[in-house]
């Protein structure tokens, strides 16, 4: 079995000591894997990624986050980034008033990248090469997402975290993004993918976790999750037990609770 890159142990985290979002979450990501983290709105998926990156001050409250064995608790986000963990945040986090080229250039601020690194990334996203001098805020949603991924790749991370890369994008663009993610993984990149689009995520992923109300309720290899009746009903929209009168349950049965 490959080495463990990211390990999250019994993490409890929240905001301003009032709102507890994560209630004891443990997961691990091994080298070369694509791990999907599924869950509905408000389950705590984004909070988990933000906790890993040190973006919430003074969190996690309890538990520990380790990357290649090194404790990440209490480190600054930029320090964590320099260790080799990159996050493509929800909403992409591009700089709308800087040009595409400047957005890419910033990824080299802490650690310079070479001309060939840049070329490799631009070959993956040829649109960005054409748009170099354009302000990033004028790109389409899909292009902005590509810019965000391209920027993260220039950091040459060993672990890439993605927060809802399909959010607000047309199905064709989503398919394009996911095929990029798959080819990145085939080239050896480890991914932790947070998604509402469970179908796409489980197609790419090797392993998955289901987060609900701050707790992990289910985990397993992606193909097993795809077959799981709960996951099918809650996240894949598969309808079971057709009612004789055509009624649908107003609330799906959760068999893990």
């Amino acid at each position: 079995m490959s080495a463990e890159l990211l390990s999250v142990r019994n993490v409890e985290a929240g905001y301003r000591r009032r709102l507890v979002v994560l209630r004891g979450v443990s997961l691990s990501v091994r080298e070369g894997q694509v791990v999907a983290l599924l869950g509905s709105n408000g389950a705590g998926k984004t909070t988990l990624l933000r906790t890993v990156m040190g973006l919430i001050p003074d969190q996690p409250e309890k538990g520990e986050v380790r990357f290649r064995g090194a404790l990440l608790n209490g480190r600054d986000p930029d320090a964590i980034t320099r260790l080799g963990v990159a996050l493509v945040p929800e909403g992409r986090g591009i700089f709308p008033e800087l040009t595409v080229a400047e957005n890419l250039q910033l990824a080299g601020y802490a650690r310079r990248y070479t001309r060939s690194d840049l070329d490799a990334v631009l070959d993956r996203f040829p649109v960005l090469r054409e748009r170099g001098r354009q302000l990033a805020g004028t790109l389409s949603g899909g292009e902005q997402q590509m810019l965000a991924v391209a920027r993260a790749l220039l950091l040459r991370p060993s672990l890439l975290l993605l927060d809802e890369p399909s959010l607000g994008l047309a199905p064709r663009v989503v398919a394009e993004i996911f095929s990029t993610l798959r080819s990145l993984n085939q080239e050896g990149m480890t991914l932790l993918l947070v998604e509402q689009n469970a179908r796409m995520a489980l197609e790419v992923a090797h392993y998955g976790y289901v987060l609900e109300a701050g707790r992990l309720v289910l985990e397993g290899p992606a193909d097993r999750l795809r077959e799981d009746p709960n996951v099918q009903e809650l996240y894949l929209g598969v309808q079971r037990e057709a009612s004789p009168k055509g009624f649908r349950r107003w609330r799906p049965k959760r068999r893990w609770a």
Binding site: R82, P89, G93, L98, A107
Partner: peptide
């Protein structure tokens, strides 16, 4: 423009 995004790119 966006301090969080800058930090995520390793900018201190």
């Amino acid at each position: 423009q966006n301090p969080v995004a800058a930090q995520l790119l390793g900018v201190p």
